[in-house]
Nucleic acid binder design. Structure first.
Lengths: 217, 217
DNA sequence: TCTTGTAGTAATCAGTTGATTACATCAAGA
DNA sequence: TCTTGATGTAATCAACTGATTACTACAAGA
């Protein structure tokens, strides 16, 4: 890897460099998804996010205008990543796949995305805030945006979409609770095998080898 | 309602009464499930729990030996309620229902239980802590206990159980994000109708009429 | 009546946290 | 060169939070 390939957006954030606001913004959002995902909205401190992004706590707060606005931006970014991943997958559809093949392709895209535990958990945190004054409607909007992509762009029927999201939510919860860590328990093995099918073994290996905090980054 | 029917376990906790430790314990756990569910583990303060239970913050901390132990107890209680609700439902099985009827009965039992938003959200919070040192294994244990009841006691096949939990997780997420509040949006209406079937209208009414904080208590 | 164990609280404290302020550094245009 | 706007930080603060301590009040048995 030569120096010219250095990408400040994905590189481990170094201290003291002067970068454009856009790049910093993306770094901070990536850090925020990790920290908010792990510790929740209340438990995720702006200081922890700042340290993970390699900037000062004061800068994080000022750039986003407060903790709640930062969480909003972080959650919207996570939801947008799902939409983008689905749209990219759908763009490759020829139009004559069986519904089952379309849902399978979307499932694979989803799992590949939420290997980044920050994305997975930030979405989960968002969805558990439905009762919140300002964040509740954001949660519903984000979910419905994904739903519409699956229904309209991917062309799944309501019933097919429902089955897809059911499987997706179970997948999400099993990964959130790190069920692969319970491998060896007969019930856990059966459940994982049935949910992930042939990919189960691969996923167990992925999950075991990867540090929880940063999604392996 | 006569005075003799007064039940300190479910009655709004009054200040200054002297009750047995067992009763106080249940009151505090009920309060904890509401507060932890709403604000998450970090955001749920022992003070808010104490106020909701009608006791002092110091008493809450001392009775459970710390905030984490209180959360553990609260999460275990929520999971146990699911197990109990399923076992009660299963006890009424004659043994010759179709699998579809068994899963439907379990679904109804689950929805009736998680009308208490505290139970719903506390479980969700627990499951999103899979990476936590001590709470992660608790999350997996609790989920697997429910899974075993559905597989062994209810006698569902792995595939049937998988479909049941998929639907259950989607139900859980939709209720967590208060999707019924988005009624009127075509996508939301279709999604709710497809997920909850004929019960959808009833659920929308229930959710709309009920204060989020206390599950209607 | 006296004692003892249980239920319960007020007061307090040290650590944490989001936010603010004032200041420093640097690149680019005039 | 000088100014100006943007990037970025150190220092500080008020509010909050979990925990501890020392205390009170009451009920039941001896």
């Amino acid at each position: 890897m030569s120096a010219s390939e250095f990408d400040p957006t994905t590189a481990p954030a170094g201290r003291g460099e002067r970068l454009s606001a856009d790049v910093r913004r993306e770094q901070i959002l990536a850090a925020a998804s990790v920290v908010f995902g792990e510790r929740g909205y209340s438990g995720g401190t702006t200081d922890a996010i700042a340290r993970q992004a390699g900037v000062s706590q004061a800068y994080v707060v000022r750039m986003f205008g407060g903790k709640e606005k930062l969480f909003r931006a972080s959650a919207e970014r996570a939801a947008q990543k799902v939409v983008d991943a689905f749209r990219t997958t759908i763009a490759d559809f020829t139009g004559d796949e069986a519904p089952h093949d379309r849902t399978l392709a979307l499932s694979v895209a989803y799992i590949n995305l939420v290997v980044d535990r920050g994305i997975l958990l930030t979405l989960l945190q968002l969805f558990s805030l439905g009762h919140d004054e300002g964040l509740g409607s954001l949660a519903r909007q984000c979910f419905l945006r994904v739903y519409r992509v699956v229904r309209e762009d991917a062309g799944l029927s309501p019933e097919e979409a429902n089955a897809f999201f059911g499987r997706g939510m179970l997948t999400t919860m099993l990964l959130a609770m790190r069920m692969p860590d319970a491998a060896g328990d007969p019930a856990a093995d059966e459940l994982m095998a049935c949910t992930f099918g042939e990919t189960s073994t691969t996923l167990i290996e992925l999950s075991r080898g990867q540090i929880p905090l940063d999604g392996g980054r």
